[in-house]
């Protein structure tokens, strides 16, 4: 018999992940928001297409338009990631967990693998589904895109990458703050409130700062042509990965130092 290994801890975390209802609910909400709201947005675009002004028609991106549901799903995946660790603190089960696995780094890496592994599959499937559904809604009225184009395929697949990275960001916030409400508030503020504050700044500052916001990075990742003043898709992906690594590292360092 072996003892505690990364493999055994990851299997244990997988049992924990799938044995609470909040995970299942989170996955359902993520899928429904991505696909359902995506379809709703696509339907609205189609209905209003004839009244849309020609300049906006020119700039229209059928890919990012069909992935609009991810704007809402990003909060659902953030909550899944956050609760994966904060529910252990709020219930006190973190002490049981760390008594069983005193090398806490293994617990966090196990959680990371389970979260990334499961959400990557779910969000990629949801993004491809909402893309295909959106194109079929647009078809005949609004210009459509095809996965045969490499830029389109990249944008759709990076949609799943974006959502998965945000789930890990949620986990990192949970590691740092350890309370569900505080972590979810901080996560939501980062995605919603800070962009609004930036909006109040002078235009030149806005142009300089907005593109660094996670939501703007997501927009770049999911567009075939990133908007002016925004980063390109791959630069945006790399930058978001850096954010996630930094936040996660801070969380791990605090975890190793603090009393459970």
């Amino acid at each position: 018999m072996n003892g505690v290994t990364l493999a055994s801890v990851t299997r244990s975390e997988w049992i924990k992940f799938r044995s609470v209802r909040s995970t299942l609910m989170g996955v359902i909400v993520t899928t429904v928001l991505t696909v359902g709201l995506g379809a709703l947005i696509a339907t609205a675009v189609r209905a209003n297409w004839s009244q849309m002004n020609p300049i906006r028609k020119l700039a229209f991106d059928p890919v990012s338009a069909s992935l609009g549901g991810t704007l809402f799903a990003q909060f659902a995946v953030g909550v899944i990631g956050t609760l994966f660790i904060t529910s252990e603190y709020s219930s006190g089960s973190i002490r049981t967990t760390f008594a069983a696995v005193p090398r806490r780094g293994l617990v966090v890496v196990g959680k990371l693998l389970v979260l990334v592994g499961s959400l990557f599959v779910v969000t990629e499937v949801a993004c491809v589904a909402t893309f295909l559904l959106g194109q079929s809604i647009f078809s005949g009225v609004v210009p459509t895109a095809s996965l045969g184009s490499s830029a389109v395929l990249r944008s759709v697949l990076l949609g799943g990458v974006y959502l998965t990275l945000l789930a890990v960001l949620g986990l990192a916030f949970g590691l740092i703050l350890r309370q569900s409400a505080a972590s979810i508030s901080a996560f939501t503020s980062l995605l919603l409130v800070i962009p609004i504050i930036l909006f109040l700044l002078p235009q030149s500052w806005q142009n300089a700062a907005t593109k660094f916001m996670p939501s703007a990075l997501g927009h770049s990742m999911m567009s075939t042509n990133a908007p002016e003043n925004f980063f390109g898709a791959w630069t945006a992906t790399a930058l978001l990965v850096v954010y996630v690594i930094v936040a996660f590292s801070v969380g791990v360092v605090l975890l190793l130092r603090r009393d459970a």
């Binding site: 049992i15 044995s19 609470v20 209802r21 252990e88 219930s91 089960s93 973190i94 002490r95 049981t96």
Partner: peptide, 14 residues
């Protein structure tokens, strides 16, 4: 010190 949403069996299995 157990997650309230998990069954006793799943807690022990983990």
């Amino acid at each position: 010190s157990v997650h309230p949403g998990r069954s006793a069996r799943n807690h022990l299995r983990a």
